[in-house]
């Protein structure tokens, strides 16, 4: 909780900075733990329901623990017509999880996103923050292998 207090201090205990506060918690813990959100709600005198509402609204926040590696497949229109669905399918098959889930060994999390704003290089996959454009089906195995 000490980290949270310094985090809140950095943002002057202002309710308007809630998104930045949540982002910092997320980058520290890889997800938003319920206990910490309750603590934040008490300290900021902000209803927990409002914080929950924000945390579930943005796809960038996760309320469940995420894996070591985060793999995000863009499912925007441009990527979709270039075969994003097949790429997602391949990831799901290889990792044996559905989009939005995490593997049992907590190594991989698979997520989808609706558009990343770089449609020209689609289909696009973001792997641990690295953008990989013109992604091909065979790249799936390569990416997963490389990280092992």
């Amino acid at each position: 909780m000490k980290n949270i207090d310094t985090n809140l201090e950095n943002y002057h205990y202002r309710k308007t900075n809630i998104i930045q506060i949540l982002q910092d918690i997320q980058s520290e813990h890889n997800y938003l733990p319920e206990k910490i959100l309750k603590y934040v709600s008490e300290r900021l005198k902000m209803p927990l329901s409002t914080i929950y509402s924000i945390a579930t609204f943005y796809a960038a926040f996760s309320l469940n623990p995420r894996g070591k590696h985060l793999c995000t497949v863009c499912m925007g229109t441009a990527c979709h017509v270039r075969g994003a669905a097949a790429i997602l399918n391949e990831f799901e098959r290889k990792l044996d999880i559905k989009a939005g889930e995490t593997t049992g060994d907590m190594n991989y999390s698979l997520e989808t996103v609706n558009c990343l704003g770089c449609c020209a290089i689609g289909p696009i996959v973001v792997y641990d923050g690295k953008y990989m454009g013109e992604f091909k089906l065979k790249d799936v195995a390569a990416v997963l292998k490389e990280k092992e």
Binding site: L37, P47, T50, Y52, F57
Partner: peptide, 19 residues
């Protein structure tokens, strides 16, 4: 009291309590 709020987004939006 702020017990209720919207949560999630788009077609998944629902009204409910925190968590």
């Amino acid at each position: 009291a702020a017990t209720l709020d919207f949560h999630h987004r788009g077609p998944d939006t629902l009204v409910g309590t925190a968590f």
